[in-house]
Simulated scan of single mutants.
Amino acid sequence: MVRERGQPRRWAVGITGASGAAYGVKLVRELLGAGIDVHLVISDAGWRVLKEELGWDASRRAAAVAEAFAHIEGGRLVYYPPGDIGAAIASGSFRCEGMVVVPCSMGTLSAIAHGSSDNLLTRAADVALKEGRPLLLVPRETPLSAVHLENMLKLARLGVRIIPAMPAFYQGPQTLDDIVAFMTGKIMDSMGLDHHLYDRWGEQHES
Rank of each mutant, 00 (worst) to 15 (best):
K26Q: 12
W11S: 03
V160S: 04
T16F: 12
A68S: 12
H148P: 04
A70I: 01
V78S: 12
L121H: 03
V28S: 04
T184N: 06
L155E: 02
Y198V: 12
R10V: 10
A12I: 12
D37K: 03
A21P: 03
M152C: 14
S110Y: 14
A58D: 09
L149R: 00
S59W: 02
I42A: 00
L136Q: 06
D199V: 10
I36G: 04
A165T: 02
P81R: 12
R140V: 09
P8N: 11
L31Q: 04
E4T: 11
G14W: 06
P167S: 14
Q204I: 07
E141A: 15
T108F: 08
S19G: 14
A124M: 06
C104K: 01
L136P: 04
A45G: 04
H195M: 00
L144M: 09
L144I: 01
L137S: 08
E97C: 10
Y170C: 07
H195V: 00
M191S: 00
L158R: 14
P164H: 15
H148S: 05
H196S: 12
S59H: 04
L158S: 10
E203S: 15
R161D: 10
T16G: 07
V2I: 09
R5K: 12
V49T: 13
A18D: 05
L121Y: 03
G107S: 08
I162T: 08
S117G: 11
G24A: 06
G46K: 00
H205E: 13
Q171W: 11
A156W: 06
Q174S: 13
H196I: 01
A181W: 04
H114G: 08
G92P: 07
T142L: 14
P164Q: 13
V102S: 11
G92A: 09
H114Y: 10
R61P: 04
T142V: 09
R10G: 02
I89Q: 03
F182D: 01
V13G: 11
L176R: 09
P164L: 15
D44N: 10
T16S: 13
A90V: 12
A68F: 01
G202P: 02
G35K: 09
S19Q: 09
G35L: 08
S190R: 15
R5I: 15
R48F: 14
A128P: 02
W56A: 15
A168N: 04
H205A: 15
M106Q: 14
G46T: 02
V65R: 05
R76K: 13
V13L: 11
T122N: 06
